[in-house]
Amino acid sequence: MSFESQGDLDARLDRLLAAYRDACPPPGLSPGFTTGIWVKIEERRRFTLAFRRLAQGLVTAAVALTLLMASYVASPWFQSSPVYSATYLDVLSEESVPQHPALLEIAHPAGGDYEAF
């Protein structure tokens, strides 16, 4: 593009934008303009209020559920649960040792004859 055509383009664009300015006169103000604003404000307020109520309801439900769970965990019935009242080692130590003779034989071979192995 030559400098001349660039300058020509510039000038044409300026003229076009000036024409655009004239082609966009301030729009006529409808009588319901301000009323429309208040309708939209009210709609948004209602939506915000409904959303806030929903959020509050969810928070209340979450708090109630937390309290319920906390009271369940703190309850004596929960505390006496065999699974959680003892450690794994406690449970193992309480397990009875094998009483069956065959098992005892394996655990403690008679005469201590290990050479057979």
Binding site: Q6, D8, L9, L16
Partner: peptide, 14 residues
């Protein structure tokens, strides 16, 4: 603008 018809016209004129 140059890609548009007006631009091509301007280029031709140039």
């Amino acid at each position: 603008f140059a890609r548009s018809g007006a631009g091509q016209e301007a280029a031709k004129a140039g």
